[in-house]
Every structure is written in C-alpha cells, then in structure tokens.
Amino acid sequence: MKKTALPSVLLAIGALLLPACHKKQAREIRIDLHLDAPLSKPDAPLLPREITQLLQPLECPAGPNALVLLTVYRHDFDPPRTETVNVAANGINALRQSLNMMAFEHHLAEYERNASSFPNQPILSTPSPKDRPGAGLEGAGTLQQEGFTFICCEPGNQSSSASYRIVGNFDELRTQLQDSLCAAAGTYYNILYRPVAANRPDLPTIGTQGAVPSSELEAFFNKIGDKEVDPEKRLVQLRQHLDLFAPNAYVKEIGEAGTISEPVPLLEYLEKIALYRSLENIYVIEALKNDQGQYWEIRLKEHHSHKGI
C-alpha cells in the first residue's frame, strides 16, 4: 500500500514546490531580440552566434541567478519556427535548458504584407514598423561598430528616446545584462539587431545600374536546369554566370509544411540542378531587394516530373 502511494506523494510535492522556485529563487530576465535584417552570411547561424555566446556567461557569481527568456523576432522572411539555444550545460544554464527557457521563437516578418495568407496563426505576430524598438532612433544616430548596431531599451519608456541605451558591441551589452542580472529585480530588454548597411549581402548585377529583373533570374535558373540541354553544357554555362551572385550566397530548401533544410552553398545547388533530368520548370516566387536595389533573398519553386513516380 505504501509502495504504491509514494510516487503520488512525490509528484504532489513537486507540483507545490516548482512555482515557489520560480517566484522566490529564480528571477526572470526577459530579452526580446528583434532581427531587422537578413542573416545570410555563409558562416552565420539562423541567429547571430554572438547572441548565444552572450547568454553563456550570464551567471551571477554570488546571489540568486535569473532565468533568461529570450524571444527572437525575425523581421526578414522565414517561416515561423522554434529553436532551442545550445549553451554549455553547466551551472545555471543547465537549469535554463531543462526548463526550456532558451527557446527561440522566429516570427514571420512578411506577416503584415501577407496577413491574409496566414490566418489563425497566433505565433505570427509582428509589431508594426513604427512600434518596433528603436523605430524613432534613426534621427538620433546610432553607433555602428563591428558591423552591428544594438539599440537597447526597457519597455514602459519606449515613447521616450532618452530611455534607449545604445550599445556598440556585444561586450558592452553583456556587461549591461550581467549588471542587471545580479543587481535588481526582474528586467526586460528589447534589443534591435541591425547589421550596418555595408554588411548587407550583395548580389552583383550584370548591368552597371539596378538589379537584374527577377524574370531574368528565373530564365537563368531554367537555363541551368533545362533537361533538354546536355548537362555538360549546363555546367559550363553556370560557371560563366556565377558573378550574378555574391560569393557567399547559399540555398535552403523549404518544404510545403515549412520544414527547412540546412543551408548549402549556392554552387552546390546549381551543380545539382545542372545535372537534373526531370526538372520541368523553376519559378521565382518572390525576389526581395535591399535598399541598394540588390536582391538579398530569392524564393524559388522547382517543378519536377519524376521518372517512375
């Protein structure tokens, strides 16, 4: 009788104590990170590696620690998805991970433009541009260092630009977070991550001005994938037109259900389609341009007639 009762008792204690842990022993520090530009450097993860590194040393040597809840809002296009940050599983990070307090939520930037295409998906919430943190700061000037700009602000005072703290690099941001973590009560940071314009991925064009029309890009992909042309010739053609793309361009496959494959270098993808024998057509669904009129993301759809399928 006693043996069967024991597990129920332990579970009940757990349920009673866990809320107490949250409230009394572990404060919560919430960081909302807004990614305001495409992240498409070849060696860049979907999230800036610096941010995940930033979280690792966030531990108070003395006194109570805090749980970090980091939510990432992507303002460039990406299907919504959640990721868990990998940090060294020691100290407070083990607890954070075990509580799933390091989940990244990606939000769809294009939601506002395509709201009708994505009904009933509450995860797809994106603040309007004027409500984004740092929206009123452009006139005040921002620090641009190491290719990044951080505009760090605390909510509640967002209407006043004086409350924004601009930090120029990750070290400064780390110091601020560490101070907050170890000193005061729960804190909420809004961080705008914006690579400087010079670091935006470029897509060199054939002409001297303006970008290649997307129809021309579509024609290029179809030429490379044309099953009626000898693959040998297609491989030669693609190498002649590689200057259409930035050397660090990459491709990620997105499935119908929104699954994403690991990004692969563009050349690898082009070589694959140059060898295709079953490709009917490639469509350019969307071609997004940056302020310089150059494409930073091109969305394609392949249509195949598979042999034997």
């Binding site: 757990g14 866990l18 083990a94 075990s98 509580l99």
Partner: peptide, 11 residues
C-alpha cells in the same frame, strides 16, 4: 527546488 529543477527531463 534545485533538485527538482535538475530532475526535469532535458529540453
């Protein structure tokens, strides 16, 4: 609390 938290299934 710490024991219970660390006993939570890994994320």
């Amino acid at each position: 609390c710490l024991w219970l938290l660390s006993a939570t299934p890994p994320a």
